[in-house]
Amino acid sequence: MSARTHPVPEQFDDPVQQREAATLGMWAFLATEVLFFGVLFAGYTLCRVMFPEAFAEGSRHTDMLLGTIETAVLLTSSCAVALSVREVQLGGRRAATAMLALTAALGIAFLVMHGFEYYAEYREGLIPAIRYTQQGVYARGMEIFYCLYYFITLFHSLHVTVGVLLLGVMAWRTWHRAFDQDYHTPLELTALYWHLVDIVWIFVYPLIYLVGRSG
């Protein structure tokens, strides 16, 4: 299916209108996503004000090295997905598919690294409600820190997972010539979504791994 054979659903006059609608729909969806994460960030902010030392202590227990690598991986993947859109616009089907596959692979790498982090935290007894063995004055505040840490990172990882699946589908469709210079809206929208996943992480990274660490 290419742009010429791609049928325009009956509610639209032409492909341009369809594309506008799809893009606006995606942006509206991303707005809701910002609010979903916004609740978690607001909760984080308030609890941090209530327990500043415990949050700093909690931050020190996180794996900054892995967190930094994860950030780099995710940023690189965002670049790759942007390149895949560019390649499709230029007609480079092979390169576009490769870029999409790379993006998905980096997303999977991110998830795997996060899995290692979770495992290390499990052994250290840092997972509230499952295995939490911290003692001392900061134990309670740190438990809240780790609650938020899990809410935020698990919710984010859920988005990464959805994104990886989408990217896989897009790679498959690109390879099978579903897109060309004129028609590649689904690919663009997937890229938009992936950028949001990336941007959210850009906020998560300093809040969880960096803030208060050196204090």
Binding site: A31, L35, F36, V39, P128, A129, C147, F151
Partner: peptide
């Protein structure tokens, strides 16, 4: 713009009820 906040808040309630941890 408002409903996501409700959805997230309700999820937090559900998690807090299920696991006994929360904010």
């Amino acid at each position: 713009l408002a409903t996501p906040v409700l959805a997230m808040t309700l999820s937090l309630i559900a998690l807090e009820r299920l696991f006994g941890v929360g904010i």
